[in-house]
Every structure is written in C-alpha cells, then in structure tokens.
Design a protein around this nucleic acid. Structure first.
Length: 378
DNA sequence: TACATACAC
DNA sequence: TATGGTGTATGTA
C-alpha cells in the first residue's frame, strides 16, 4: 500500500524529555483516516512498551548509524573549498538545464490506488464484515499478500484499466499507472473527469473503492521518491527541505554524491520521472525467508533451511527459472542482518542443489543465535 | 563478485 | 516477551 502521508521525521535534536518522538518510523500511525487518533499518546505508549527489547536496541543502533552518516556528510561538506563549491555549482546548473530540457508535459498519467485493499477483499468474500471495524493480519501482525489477494490484486480492475490504457502498469497488488493522454484527447475530456469515471467503473464492476491522482508523469501522479534515511541526511546535513532547496543546493549534492545519485535528486527537484512506457521487466531474483523465535539449535536451523530450500526450488521451477548465485540471509537474535553468497559454475534449481550450497553457507556461520533464515537465487 | 543499505509495497 | 516478506537498485571494496 502506498503511504501518501510522510512522517514528519525529527530532523535533528529531539528534546530528551520526549524520547519517543524520535521513533517516528517504527511507531507512526500516520495513515489516511486516522486524524482523530491522539498521535503523540499512541507513540508514547508504544515506546514505553517497547524500550529495552532487543528489537528496540537494534533500532537505536540503526539510528546511531544514520547519525554517523549524517555527521560524515557534514564533515565532507565543511571540507569543500570555495573553488570546489563554485566548480560543482556550475556542474549542477548545467545538469539542471539538461534535465529540464527533457521535461515532457505532454503526457497525462493517472495513478490508481485501491483503498484498504486487503480489508476490502476480505469484506467482498465475507459480506457480514461490512461496516465493522477490522484489521487484516498476516503472520504475526502485518498483512502479507496471501494467494487469494495475489490472484485478485489490481487484476480485478484490469478490464476497466484496459479500456483506458491497454499498456497500463500494475505497480503492485493494489496500485496501477495509466497513461490516459489519448483518452483525454480523443474524447475531449479533462483528466479529472476520466479519473472520476474510472473510480466509478471500478466500484461498479468490482465493488472496490480506489483513489486516483493525475500528473504529467508517474512521479507527480503519485508523489514520492525519497526515503527516511535520505530525507534525514538531506535535511540535517544540507538543510534541504523542499524541491526548491534540492535545486538551489544542487552544487553540494553534485560534490558529495555519485553522479547518478545527484541526478536522481535534481530530477526529483524538477518533478521529473516516469514519462516513459517501460516494457514489462523480467524477474531478476527469487527469495524467501522465515522469522522464528531466536535459537541456537542447529538441528532446528538446518530443518528451517531445508524447508526454505524446498519452497524456493518449487517456486523457481513453477516459473521455469534457475539461479547461479545463492544467497543466505541471516538475522541474529540482536536483529542484525547478514548475507552470505556463493556464485556457482552452473545454474541450479533443484531443492537438493540449493540445500547443499545453503548448508555450506550456514555451517560457516554457526554457532549463532538466529531469528530468521532466508534464501535467494539470482 | 560479495556484501550491506536503502527503499517500496 | 514481542515487530513481515519479496524484490530492486546502488555504493563500496
């Protein structure tokens, strides 16, 4: 599900008297339709209940890492000479002009997002739930896509979408992008009218409610792009809070980030992104992982690994795929994630082959107290 | 190539 | 006492 609401992550120093305020990502309740909830109160209660847990300590470790990255960036920033700054400012200006020249405002993109998708699917198959408060949970607490949902997904609304854009892009189970340029021109209707029409048709034909946003490209149709860590670095090290800032401080970005990262930031600043019509890309990897209560029991760990290898093998064969690099993923009792990989002379897909190599990788890491094992084929 | 991170959903 | 699963991209060594 897409989150249109960004958490207002604490940019720098949080008063010590309110430590829970720095844990926005984990304990946020910033979801549409939750305006009436006392945000700070919820945050404080969850914080009180969680502090001291191993998970929490790991979150603190990650926060410290993020601060370190920010400090490091600040330091590099401080070391730039006047000449450097002038040099990179020129580079940024040139790049901004080049990027701006590629701006294409001729297309009209529509982003469709199913509202409360899992709950809606559940209600359709069990109408007695209608109007009742409901939460959909998967394994443990967060909803995961079960096979029913996967089969369903945006596919339910596909016939509608196809009437407007034969090549519409399904971005995930509950999101799709439609290029409605031609429809608007041929029928001489405004994009917001088309959006409304699609919303109504989807509801009439599937019973699902969706939101739709319009823009000249997919980035703007949806709004998004920068994650929590990047946002923190941009805000605190560069004092970049807005798209305008991204452009004005482009010189610093060009100086301290790789050309491709700098390009990405400048494009976001210009509101560029997603005007192309990508051909359906092929899958590049397949993976699976399981969480369990932390244990050092080697028999148990090897058993889990065998199960995962078997599942991965069946999934690979179902799609007729094979992999040449096998990656083992581990999460320790203290929530640190590790990956170990081997690249083989030949592609494999049988559960025996996968298990054989996965076992070798695991063996090298034992003894260890683990709470998750995963396997991936690329 | 191997590994870690970040990100999206 | 307790916090998911799957996939992609990218930086770095």
């Amino acid at each position: 599900m897409s989150k249109m609401v960004k958490s207002e992550s604490s940019s720098s120093d949080v008063p010590l008297s309110k430590p829970w305020q720095s844990y926005q990502t984990v304990y946020t309740n910033a979801k549409a339709g939750m305006d009436g909830v006392e945000k700070e109160k919820v945050q404080r209660i969850v914080y009180e209940m969680s502090k001291g847990s191993k998970y929490f300590e790991n979150e603190e470790r990650k926060e410290a890492l993020m601060r370190q990255r920010t400090d490091n960036m600040r330091e590099r920033l401080g070391k730039l000479s006047i000449t450097d700054i002038a040099h990179y400012q020129k580079i940024a200006e040139r790049r901004i002009t080049e990027l701006e020249a590629t701006r294409d405002l001729s297309r009209i993109w529509l982003h469709v997002d199913m509202d409360a998708f899992y709950a809606a699917v559940e209600t359709l198959s069990n109408p007695s739930l209608k109007g009742k408060p409901m939460a959909v949970g998967g394994m443990s607490m967060i909803s995961t896509a079960n096979y029913e949902a996967r089969r369903y997904g945006v596919r339910a609304a596909m016939p509608v979408f196809q009437r407007y854009d034969l090549n519409f892009i399904s971005a995930s189970l509950d999101e799709a992008y439609l290029d409605i340029t031609e429809v608007c021109r041929e029928r001489d209707v405004r994009s917001d009218e088309v959006a409304e029409e699609i919303r109504r048709s989807v509801f009439e034909e599937t019973g699902l409610i969706c939101s739709a946003g319009v823009g000249p490209n997919r980035l703007l149709a949806k709004i998004g792009g920068i994650g929590k860590v990047t946002e923190h670095i941009l805000r605190t090290a560069f004092e970049i809070d807005t798209c305008k800032d991204l452009l004005e401080k482009g010189g610093f970005l060009c100086a301290l980030f790789s050309p491709s990262s700098a390009d990405f930031f400048l494009s976001v600043g210009l509101g560029l992104g997603g005007t192309d019509t990508p051909q359906a890309r092929l899958r590049k990897s397949m993976s699976n992982e399981r969480t369990f209560s932390a244990t050092e029991d080697e028999a148990f760990l090897y058993q889990k690994l065998a199960e995962l290898s078997h599942i991965l093998s069946t999934d690979l064969q179902k799609e007729g795929l094979r992999g040449r690099t096998l990656t083992l993923k581990l999460k320790t009792a203290s929530f640190e994630v590790q990956t170990r990989a081997v690249t083989l002379p030949k592609c494999i897909c049988s559960s025996e082959d996968i298990l054989l190599h996965a076992k070798k990788l695991l063996k090298a890491e034992l003894p260890a107290s683990l709470r998750l094992i995963g396997s991936k084929a690329v």
